[in-house]
Amino acid sequence: MSRCLVLAEVIDGALAAVTAEAVGAAVALGDEVVLAVAAADPDALVAAASFTGVTEIVTVAVGGSDRDHDLAKQIAAAVIADVAPDVVVAPFTIRSTSFGPALAHSLDLALVADAVALQRDEDGALTAIRSIYAGRVHAEVTFPTDRPVLALVRPSVWVPADVGSPVASRSLAVDVEPSKVRALDLVRPSGDVDLTRADVIFSIGRGVGSQENIAAFADVAERLGVALAASRPVVDAGWLPAVHQVGQTGVTVKPRLYVAFGISGALHHLAGMQNSKTILAVNTDGDAPIFGYADLGAVADVHEVVEQLQSLI
């Protein structure tokens, strides 16, 4: 039986929800699963990390920030040396991609990032599937050498593991060198917009053309009582504050209805909205990747559609 190590994601000292999904991916492989939790006070997280299927929790007390990828890489290397896994699983998030590929180089691990499936073939060898080219192609990948595999798994794909009865834990002391990256200042989004609670979201993208054009969408959203969101280019251009941004570096939303106006469907946007219950996309480009993720689509001018919306309400 092979051994799978899951690297827990810790955000602001708490266990992030994606950790349960990474454990779910590891348990589904049928391996012995060891979960590593590195935090300022990791013992406080053991109860929340006692997922069904985990055989042991290894805790590492860390003196620095959970955003520091230089420290995270050193800690992961020490845990891997201690546990000697065949497969290492971590979520495909900014924290993990910040150190994972560098770790793979330093420890000579095979690397697959943003995997959407992991399985064992009839000989027990690991294979993975990546979703590429705007989701239009699935690539099956294999690992031809006997080096351990680091698999970064896409969030919201695996069923999260449930927390069960307490799992035995042990602590591992890790000496780290000071980080080469110095943190100076942290800014969190402010504002009273909470997109995560909205039942319906109207989201606007580069296709709205200019800041002046946003007024009509904001008007319709307000009159219908739905939340207004945006893709990254709209926020980068300064047309809407960052608190409205849906995507990998914005908010992740799962409303009952997500209407995308003039959004092409870049990877980082899809990461934030693809689990919405119903997705409706309006775009002038019928070949836009967003249509591959939508239940309903219309190839139409968003300005004409919003004018019609204004006249219908």
Binding site: G135, R136, V137, H138, A139, E140, V141, T142, T145, A294
Partner: peptide, 19 residues
């Protein structure tokens, strides 16, 4: 350490059927 062995078409990135 990693090789692509086979590509397959994935109609609709998310498996949703588009109307």
């Amino acid at each position: 350490r990693m090789v692509v062995t086979r590509l397959t078409a994935a109609p609709g990135g998310s498996g949703r059927s588009l109307e």
